[in-house]
């Protein structure tokens, strides 16, 4: 794709009980957020396996957003607390191996926070736009495929 008309494509893993509903709310409130995000609904942020994030990046998306309930609000009591520990190390490891920190983001967004969801998505997409297309897993030879 030409650099000039490149649009970031990002994936959002949103928790069914909060962030997904938050995104829904921002829609019904007629708030605008970038259409660059493809949302995948998950039962809990604790469901996110680091494999999801890496496979998404390997398959060429430009960014991955993971969003769940605020600490203490988990529908399953502690899913997001466990997730937070995982995310902390995933975050550090990805940075360490050289994946731009803008590409992977973790957020807490509640079901009532429609405007926040729109804002989070907006800021995330802008961040990804700044770092440019994801060429991390591309082979030089096969580039442009």
């Amino acid at each position: 794709m030409e650099e000039s008309n490149w649009e970031p494509k990002v994936i959002g893993f949103l928790c069914h009980w909060c962030s997904y509903a938050g995104a829904d709310l921002s829609g019904s409130a007629r708030l605008e957020y970038p259409h660059n995000i493809r949302i995948i609904r998950i039962p809990c942020s604790g469901r996110v396996d680091p494999m999801f994030i890496l496979r998404a990046l390997q398959n060429g998306v430009d960014g991955v957003l993971v969003s769940g309930c605020h600490p203490g609000d988990c529908h399953y009591q502690s899913g997001n607390f466990h997730a937070r520990r995982k995310f902390a190390v995933i975050n550090r490891l990805l940075k360490y191996v050289g994946i731009e920190p803008e590409r992977v983001q973790f957020s807490w967004v509640a079901a009532s926070e429609g405007p926040k969801m729109a804002q989070v998505i907006g800021e995330f997409v802008e961040g990804v736009r700044k770092v440019g297309p994801n060429r991390l897993f591309k082979d030089e030879k096969k580039d442009g495929e």
Binding site: F81, H82, R84, R85, A88
Partner: peptide, 16 residues
């Protein structure tokens, strides 16, 4: 094991 429990005060300054 470290990932089978948690503390309410675990660091989360990286969460936006």
């Amino acid at each position: 094991p470290v990932f089978s429990h948690y503390e309410a005060t675990d660091p989360d300054e990286f969460m936006k």
